[in-house]
């Protein structure tokens, strides 16, 4: 089976236990306002042009295609760029090829207690491919899946039986706000979380701290209460990084966050402590 990835990164150190090789699967059902990997959102293959060193010579577009009345980059643009600045984002690989790629460093990963993490985008968008990958890698290397939790409940239940670790994002507890900032409702996310918490599988909860959005007192209180209900005592916090917008230019898009990104992030470790939850800032 073939899947579409947009990056394989070695030396993932904040993506689970030990050193991880992180596979980024393309496509995501969410459109988080703060997303720092916009190139992973669309399912389609895209061509990216690095603005650093660009001569604005136009050769890439001359070699490009016309789509909806305007010139866009295509495969031929890569060779056309004299600076080698155009690259493809979205590579179609077979599960065997991808397995060989991540396993080429399996000896290091095993030696240091690391493994492979599937991230995205939202990796479960390519559900069958993901499940096949997890199956191929079973027993060969430690497997983790990083997810938004926005996935059909039955499918999620089956996924839990196929991986060694889940990294699960909790963003906003209020459904309306969740819809506003990510584009989707959170009911299924919370339901899947409850199911996972009851299962014997190891998981790590991660909360992105977005100024004025997810780091508010109300939201953090609600998250603490929710973690408490699910008997969870460990959480990883990911404070907003001002570099989040840097990749939008690559995709020919503009970064327009609908929150004030200059505000200081509220990293309230004590709040979690009061709820007997150990919070670690990544």
């Amino acid at each position: 089976m073939r899947g579409r990835i947009f990056s394989v990164e070695e030396f993932g150190i904040f993506d689970g236990d030990g050193i991880r090789t992180t596979v980024f699967l393309k496509g995501c059902p969410l459109r988080c306002s703060w997303c720092h990997s916009p190139e992973g959102q669309r399912c389609e293959t895209e061509y990216l042009r690095s603005p650093n060193g660009c001569l604005n010579c136009g050769k890439c577009l001359d070699a490009g295609e016309t789509a909806i009345g305007r010139r866009v980059l295509c495969e031929a643009s890569i060779a056309a760029c004299p600076r080698n600045l155009v690259r493809v984002c979205g590579e179609d690989v077979t599960s065997e090829e991808l397995a060989a790629r991540v396993l080429k460093n399996a000896d290091i990963l095993r030696a240091v207690g690391g493994g492979v993490t599937f991230s995205g985008g939202e990796p479960t968008m390519q559900y069958d491919f993901l499940m096949e990958m997890l199956e191929i890698l079973e027993g060969k290397v430690h497997r983790a899946v990083e997810t938004t939790g926005y996935i059909d409940e039955d499918r999620f239940a089956r996924l839990l039986g196929k991986t060694d670790l889940v990294l699960y994002d909790l963003k906003l507890m209020d459904g309306t706000l969740h819809k506003k900032y990510t584009g989707v409702d959170n009911a299924v996310i919370l339901a899947n979380y409850r199911r996972m918490a009851k299962s014997p599988l190891r998981f790590i909860t991660r909360v992105p701290l977005i100024p004025g959005v997810t780091d508010t007192e109300e939201n953090l209180d609600a998250i603490c209460a929710f973690l408490g209900e699910n008997a969870v005592s460990y959480v990883e916090l990911l404070p907003y990084n001002r570099l989040a917008g840097s990749k939008y230019k690559l995709c020919g898009r503009q970064y327009r966050p609908d929150f004030d990104e200059t505000r200081t992030v509220n990293i309230d470790l004590e709040k979690f402590e009061r709820h007997h939850i150990k919070a670690v800032r990544l």
Partner: peptide, 15 residues
């Protein structure tokens, strides 16, 4: 930026 990173660099060197 934190001790998790420092520990994993140690693992990289050991590898």
């Amino acid at each position: 930026r934190n001790h998790i990173g420092v520990d994993k660099v140690a693992d990289l060197v050991r590898a």
